[in-house]
Design a protein around this nucleic acid. Structure first.
Lengths: 248, 248
DNA sequence: CACGCGCATTGACGCAGATCAACCTGGCCG
DNA sequence: CGGCCAGGTTGATCTGCGTCAATGCGCGTG
């Protein structure tokens, strides 16, 4: 919510919505000014590819609004989503030349970018920026490893529940909603994208979503709008203990 | 190999084998001296738990010799290995209090540790340490995401081949052996540990290893000593294009 | 309105890998 | 030496999910 307002009225770091989590969280006014110089916004349409794996990347940045996915593809076409980019998530690999994955916008998308070279130079002289990026990367690493457990050991039903829990939690925390009880959100992904995230087929996703609906774990309005009447029940279905687990 | 010699004759960073990849790679003599003050070695026996998930961690460090695994466990006992720690790999989460995973030594293990608080202080004032850690964390993130593709989309046979390729490559690069042709190494993992890494059962691992042997992709001397007559053939079996893929 | 198209659902069937179970193999210790 | 036990192999059977295929549903467009 906060994310989607204000951002263009005052397109500078101090007013920038990404400030909540992103690089400039601890910057002083001098550093903000330097960030401001190398900052620009980019917009993408739904379905558009933001970065091809292997591309030279000349920027780093954060998602301001919209959703993008991060995927890997094998030569024979099998694909695995390895990350989901929601508002405030960071994109880019300071110190690296190439992109490692495909980044695709799944909705209309706005990114707040910094030109990479000068950003890296700023990083050299500003310790807390590197530290901030380290913290964010550790978060991503935790999320990736959490997801390895989901992919390697969970059943299809548990996988679906885990995904719904992650999206629901993420959405809820943005809205400062309570972490238990009733939760409502929109699925930002097609059944196929969900399947790619979970290492399943879209048919299995569809079946398991229907099953969770039939069993009262979730309610559906249309295909995408989800109501979770009891969030802790969903966590149980995901195979997590009610409080821990599922970072991001 | 290099790893296992010398390390205790001269227990300072300049002679420390981990210097090849780890934090002190770019330190000047002053910084090395400060690292030296907060450095100590710890030894573990095979099977010993180094860290329990949730433990308060008061150190960060690198593996000097031996092998450890990084695992997550669900309440019902299902476990997923999320990382393999070989010599020179970094352990720890600067800026974080708790451990996120169980770390278990699978062989006798020596770690080179730094006390965490002073290490973090050093990081505050020494930009390139945070940058170095960021690079290492990005490497781990790439590896974790690569592994997500393995877990989510590969068949059992491909999974085994991928694991053998990773271990073989890692082992070979340490010994500066060529990246193609004949490769020889020892499996540092039991069949069960391999299964936990790959999201399979140990029976399936055993069967697929036998199958790869039967098909001439690998040769086995005993249960653990592996010869790969043609590394690029192994990469094919893993579903990778011969040059790219499988970071770490 | 009918048509087409992208997305989703549902059913029938087959198979890769899990499960259960028996047996092997080599190293250690009394 | 023999017995034990952890780790490994192999076989028989079961099942969850993939595969293939038909059908539904909402929406924009001619």
């Amino acid at each position: 919510m906060l994310q989607d307002t204000l951002s263009f009225a005052t397109p500078d770091c101090s007013g920038c919505p990404i400030r909540h989590r992103a690089v400039c969280a601890r910057c002083d006014s001098d550093e903000l000014a330097r960030l401001e110089e190398i900052k620009y916004y980019r917009s993408f349409e739904a379905g558009q590819t933001v970065i091809w794996s292997g591309d030279r990347m000349d920027f780093v940045g954060s998602v301001v609004s919209g959703i993008a996915t991060l995927t890997q593809t094998m030569e024979d076409g099998r694909t695995q989503m390895v990350g989901l980019l929601l508002p405030s998530d960071f994109v880019g690999r300071p110190g690296r030349d190439g992109a490692a994955y495909d980044v695709v916008a799944t909705s209309d998308l706005v990114m707040c970018c910094f030109r990479k070279k000068p950003f890296e130079q700023l990083m050299e002289t500003t310790p807390h920026i590197a530290q901030r990026l380290l913290q964010m990367t550790l978060d991503e690493l935790d999320a990736a490893r959490e997801w390895m457990l989901v992919l390697g050991r969970k059943t299809a039903r548990e996988k679906i529940a885990s995904l719904l829990a992650i999206i629901g939690r993420r959405d809820a925390s943005i809205q400062s909603a309570p972490m238990s009880g009733r939760i409502v959100f929109d699925l930002p992904l097609t059944r196929e994208a969900m399947a790619d995230y979970l290492g399943l087929t879209l048919e299995t996703v569809s079946r398991q979503v229907s099953a969770l609906k039939r069993d009262g774990v979730i309610e559906l309005q249309g295909k995408r709008h989800v109501t979770v009447p009891d969030f802790s029940r969903l966590l149980e279905e995901a195979g997590d203990d009610a409080d821990g687990g599922l970072l991001v």
